[in-house]
Simulated scan of single mutants.
Amino acid sequence: MSRVVVGVSGAPGSLAALHRAAAEARLRDAELWAVLAWQSPGNELGSRNGLGPSAWGECRAAAVERLREYLDTAFSAVKPSVTLAGLTVRGTPGAALVDVARDPEDLLVVGTGSRAPLRRLVRPSVARYCLAHAACPVLVVPPSPLQAELESVHRRNLWRIPLDPRELAS
């Protein structure tokens, strides 16, 4: 059976990608695989500092719980009506998604996050990584137009810019 693999992070863009992936899975009569990538505290440095098996188990359990919460939030109102599998993978998001969606018959769905200049320096684009390295088709889902408005409101609040009442009329 073919698969639609989708990256899940809890971000609003990830939620849009998850809903689009569910729609694609219904169209293709495919399984929906929701993948959450996780890393140990300190990333690879943490693995060299002697994290014991219990710490690894706690990190993995926390990732599994986060994935359950994200899926419950995403599908609380309407169930996806396809076979849904959740998978947590230790690693960076792009590499983990490309590794899971390695069959040419798969479809990999990723959301685009905020691409503010500072975030580009700190966190590389998962979508770009997947487009460059995936062995299967990749569908990149843009953020909701409401997301840009929400980010604008957050910036306004951060910089304490007063609301102009004329903006409410439009």
Rank of each mutant, 00 (worst) to 15 (best):
G13Q: 06
A135T: 10
G13H: 04
A16Q: 14
R26P: 05
D29S: 14
T88S: 11
E65Y: 01
S152M: 11
L139T: 08
S81W: 00
V82N: 07
L121F: 04
P124W: 06
S114C: 10
A16Y: 05
G86H: 03
V89L: 05
E151M: 15
A62G: 08
G13I: 08
G7S: 03
C59V: 15
L51M: 13
V109R: 15
R156N: 11
S14T: 07
V100F: 07
V122E: 04
H19E: 15
R28P: 02
L18N: 05
A132C: 02
R123Y: 05
E65H: 10
G57K: 03
C59T: 14
A37S: 05
G113D: 13
P142Y: 00
A74F: 02
A74Y: 02
W56I: 12
T92K: 09
G86P: 13
P124Y: 01
L51K: 02
L150K: 10
A11Q: 07
N49T: 13
R119W: 01
R20V: 08
A132I: 00
R20I: 00
V4H: 04
A148N: 03
M1H: 11
A63M: 07
V140D: 02
S40Y: 00
V110H: 10
E167I: 03
L131Y: 06
A95N: 07
H154K: 13
V98T: 10
R28Q: 09
N49I: 07
S81C: 06
D72K: 12
R26V: 03
A116V: 04
A37Y: 00
Q147T: 13
G91T: 07
A96P: 11
D103L: 09
A77P: 03
R3Q: 14
E24Q: 13
A62M: 02
T112A: 10
W159E: 15
P143F: 01
N43C: 06
G13L: 05
E58F: 01
D72W: 01
W56M: 15
R123P: 02
P80Q: 14
S152E: 13
A30L: 09
V4I: 12
P145W: 04
V78Y: 01
R26Y: 00
R26Q: 13
P117R: 09
V64P: 00
V35D: 01
L121D: 07
P41T: 05
S2A: 09
W33G: 00
F75T: 15
G91P: 04
L45P: 00
A101E: 10
